[in-house]
């Protein structure tokens, strides 16, 4: 039987962690784009768009991410569509991320004082101009810390994709445990790597919050 050194374990975990990072980035950016589109529907005037996004958000926030992954992976399989694990994982995570980002961002837009709308209205600006020049620039600033903070949830969420067979950090940990019979060492390393990915994100979220608040003392 092969002997595994700690370095062997760590090296293999780090290789797998690349997929965690890749999946996190793709999900976060994709979720951001889908979320931005949904946001326009959510706060726009159209009744149908509002209802659609509301139902969408309720569905994705009201069911476990694990179920969403199962449905994306096995659900489409039932219709004879062969979905590879990486595709199911990406799609599910993007849709899940979007559902949360929409609500975070909607809160930011609605936190802008009513007087800002009234002042820009009284100057003759239309809805899109108000959004573009007055509301969004302020809302974006408020949105940065919670958005970065949420990215931590996305990174941790990728761990669930191991269940449908996508080989990222958590899945690699399981495989290595089965080969080395050293669960404590292996999962210890796994946890450490997750922490190294997540901690800088949550830390920078705090730093950003303090920084952006200083530039925004009046609010």
């Amino acid at each position: 039987m092969n002997e595994f050194t700690d370095w062997d374990i760590l090296r293999n975990l780090l290789l797998a962690a690349r997929w965690t990072v890749a999946l996190s980035i793709v999900s976060f950016i994709g979720g951001g784009i889908v979320g931005a589109l949904l946001l326009l529907l959510r706060i726009g005037e159209g009744r149908a768009g509002q209802i659609f996004t509301k139902v969408y958000i309720e569905l994705f926030q009201g069911t476990p991410l694990l179920m969403q992954l199962f449905l994306a992976f096995f659900g489409l399989g039932l219709f004879g569509i062969d979905v590879p694990a990486w595709l199911a994982a990406t799609v599910a995570l993007i849709l899940w991320t979007a559902a949360f980002l929409v609500e975070i961002w909607r809160g930011c837009v609605e936190s802008i004082a009513k007087g800002q709308w009234e002042a820009s209205s009284s100057l003759g600006m239309g809805y899109l101009q108000q959004m573009r020049y007055v509301i969004l620039p302020q809302a974006l600033r408020i949105a940065v810390p919670p958005t970065v903070g949420f990215s931590v949830q996305v990174v941790k969420g990728t761990a669930l994709t191991s269940i449908i067979g996508f080989v990222e950090l958590a899945k690699a940990g399981t495989v290595l445990t089965n080969a080395t019979f050293q669960p404590f060492t292996v999962y210890g390393f796994v946890a450490l790597i997750y922490f190294c990915l997540c901690w800088p994100l949550s830390k920078s979220s705090q730093v950003l919050e303090r920084k952006l608040n200083v530039a925004h003392r009046n609010h």
């Binding site: 004082a113 007087g115 800002q116 009234e118 002042a119 820009s120 209205s121 009284s122 100057l123 003759g124 239309g126 809805y127 007055v134 620039p137 302020q138 600033r141 925004h216 009046n218 609010h219």
Partner: peptide
């Protein structure tokens, strides 16, 4: 409607109790 409102608002300016300057 937005067209008439804009025409009206170009003729009357408004100043508010809370200033409502754009802070950014």
């Amino acid at each position: 409607d937005e067209l008439h409102l804009k025409a009206l608002r170009l003729k009357v300016g408004m100043i508010f109790q809370q200033f409502n300057l754009f802070p950014h």
